[in-house]
Nucleic acid binder design. Sequence first.
DNA 1: GTTATCTATGTAAATATTTATATAGTAGAA
DNA 2: TTCTACTATATAAATATTTACATAGATAAC
Lengths: 185, 185
Amino acid sequence: MSLQHILLGIIAEPKSGYDIKQEFDSSLKHFWFAELSQIYPALKKLVADDLARVEGVPSDKGPDKKLYSRTDAGTQALIDWLHTGPATSPVRHGFLGQVFFMGTQKDREAALKFFKELKAHYQARYAALQAVEAGWKAQCPTYPDGLGDDDFFMQMTLDAGLRFQRSYMDWCTNSIDRIKSRYHD
Amino acid sequence: MSLQHILLGIIAEPKSGYDIKQEFDSSLKHFWFAELSQIYPALKKLVADDLARVEGVPSDKGPDKKLYSRTDAGTQALIDWLHTGPATSPVRHGFLGQVFFMGTQKDREAALKFFKELKAHYQARYAALQAVEAGWKAQCPTYPDGLGDDDFFMQMTLDAGLRFQRSYMDWCTNSIDRIKSRYHD
DNA sequence: GTTATCTATGTAAATATTTATATAGTAGAA
DNA sequence: TTCTACTATATAAATATTTACATAGATAAC
């Protein structure tokens, strides 16, 4: 049920589905992700449930935009969600499943390749988050201090993203070392 | 597509859907999770695709068990999966979405309560993983050294789980401190 | 002028997952 | 004996997500 609520959070300022997709891909990537084909129907449902309203406006480029914004009921639904306690749900990590069964293969080089690829993946994600952080730093010289209330909590999620990616990278690094020293090096 | 492959990995020894569910809930919890209502149809599909075979056997307790095991094609499908590169997929963290929009509330106590609850959640998961680790240690006095090839990689996923939970907990601790010091304490 | 790219909105179909419900045997407790 | 808990399998319905497809305006490159 989180997507609906996250959309409600995002449309504090009127936004189109396309705008929202860009926000997911830039600043929200570290905790949520959705395709346009999921966003458009979800926005429709918010309107059907009276949690959002929609207004069509001409676009500078391309077809007309549909700007969605929260109704009072939508704002209340968002507040309720924030008060229901942390939305933790079991995380699925396919790559850990692969590692779990990797021992059956007995292929040191394949294992090393796997972990190096995984590490590169998380390094790229880490670099992307650092770029977002660099944007914040450029705007606020005392970062991460001196942020407004809204930004304070948003920065916390960025901090979480950076920490988690580092954690993944550290695990990869350590795993590579362990594989190397186990199979003579 | 990971569930099918994880099931193929699990049925290296013949197992029933019920057995598999118990394995998910005990030792695989840190990277995958599935309901029985998802496992049973998935096993059926493996058989339909000739990746597994099934054998009915009487149970000591309750109705007959259906034991699933891999066919050669199933083993090959598992190997192929291990060679397709790390199965990374974007992770969705509802609780980070909540934090992202929490600044609109300006309720210090609610924020602290939220993070304490989240920290308790991850502490509980961490303790569960430590219990699994204690089982390993009891079996192998030199843990984490001196494990067989299979166990070596399985232990790596446990190590990952422990690291990731610690990372979540550290972030919670740090966030609580930051909230306290921001709103005078 | 044609092609590629970006903006912009969607639907359809397939797959994945969750929640609810149904059935049935076995064992131990009340 | 009835109730509860655990073992065991399964389907139905709802929700969530991904992948593929379809349409169309604007703008810049070639």
